[in-house]
Amino acid sequence: MYSDNDLNLAKQLLTHSVELEEGQNIMIQCIGLNAIGLVRALAKLVREINGHPFIKIEDPETNRMLLETGDEEYWKNQADADQLPLMKKMDAFIGIRASENIFENSSVSKQANKAYSEFFVNPVHFQQRVNHTNWAVLRYPSAAFAMNAKMSTERFRQFYYDACLFDYNKLKEAMLPLEKRLYETDKIQLKSDDTDIEFSVKGQDWIPCYGKRNIPDGELFSSPILDSVNGHITYAPSVYQGKPFEFVKLVVENGVVKDFDSSNNDALEEILDTDEGARRFGEFSFGLNPIIKEPMYDILFDEKITGSNHLTLGNDYEIAPNGNESAIHWDLVCIGANVYLDGELIRNGRLFATEDLMGLNPEELLEV
């Protein structure tokens, strides 16, 4: 019916991540049948506390067909007639991404993706779910997922549960000194052989993430002052809207992407041309999960890579805003750059270098 790992993960999701209480409504969305055991475990535990689960199981190939054929009218009707009224009744949301092909939506056009993002994802998820529910989203392990991570299926499954069931309370405490420093910081600089970029975060809010919204988790994020970003940055491999990128390089002037290079420039240009905000940055974050060390073409894992940062193209988050609005939100990850706060080196490559921050290094976080 479900494994012990599924049951343990379900318990953490419900008690730590979304903190579901008796009598509350929760939507459990599963895209793909691969995670049906986890869905069953969640439904069982929700009912045990007299909660009300609303189960939505979706087929990735059907979703791709709807994405390819959907237009503004279709997605607006889907949001207004079904998902938005239901989401407004939810106290919590758990989204499980169990598709076995991360490139399933690679053929979807720019216009179709924009219609879906603008008229469905934005109102249903960014505006309603993100701002008005306790929510968590996660991937689910599969053989295909293991291939992207270049691991055997068995080894990847263990890695997955290790990363997801990590001691987030220990991480929460270890983040406090970095959070304090960042609230006192004006300029942040990332610098390496292929990256040299600077921006201001003066007066911005910082949000520590320790298993409450994304699983696996482990980041501390805010957003840069909109027009303060200047320099060039090189990112690790990424997949966005089903399209693979082996690398992405951006040149930025006064907060706007002015030049770019990648392994897929036609697709990158389409994404950047989505709207005005797509060439600006809506988030900056530190990746802090000590279990996750290499990119694996999955942003829920890659954005948490220890010793990484993501400087995100597109929409900001209402919880840490900078005024950028866009139909996209692309968490591109830069791994191993030196990090300077107002000129002081606080991370040398992938390891924090000051005494107050060394508790965030993997050997400290994983010490029993």
Rank of each mutant, 00 (worst) to 15 (best):
G70A: 07
V124G: 08
L182M: 12
I271M: 15
S107V: 01
H132Q: 14
A146W: 05
P237I: 01
Y235E: 02
G211L: 11
E283M: 02
V333F: 09
V252W: 12
E68T: 05
D273G: 15
D59H: 07
T15N: 15
T354K: 10
D356A: 05
Y160C: 01
E22W: 07
A174N: 10
E355P: 09
Q204C: 10
A144M: 07
R181V: 13
A41L: 11
L272H: 13
G23L: 02
H310V: 02
Q241K: 14
H125Q: 14
E283I: 09
I94H: 06
N230L: 02
K304R: 11
Q127L: 15
V368E: 15
L67G: 11
C30L: 14
L311M: 05
N122P: 10
I49D: 04
Q29R: 15
W330N: 03
L33Q: 07
P321R: 03
R129N: 09
K191H: 00
S3Q: 03
D261L: 11
D194C: 12
G323T: 00
L38T: 05
F284S: 05
I49M: 03
Y235G: 04
A353I: 00
A327R: 10
D227Q: 05
E325L: 10
Y340S: 04
L300W: 07
I55A: 05
V257G: 06
S192E: 02
V251S: 15
Y116S: 02
E344P: 04
F260V: 09
V39I: 06
M27C: 14
V239L: 03
N122K: 15
N169H: 06
E61G: 08
R139W: 14
M175K: 10
N148V: 02
S107R: 05
D71L: 03
R47C: 13
R279I: 09
C164W: 08
I94S: 09
F199S: 05
F120Y: 12
E294A: 04
K11Y: 08
D162C: 05
H125F: 15
G95F: 15
V256C: 11
Q12T: 10
L176C: 07
S152T: 13
I207F: 14
G277P: 07
A353T: 02
N348V: 03
G314I: 08
R40V: 11
N5L: 07
I319Q: 08
P290S: 05
A41P: 08
Q158G: 13
G242M: 11
R350L: 00
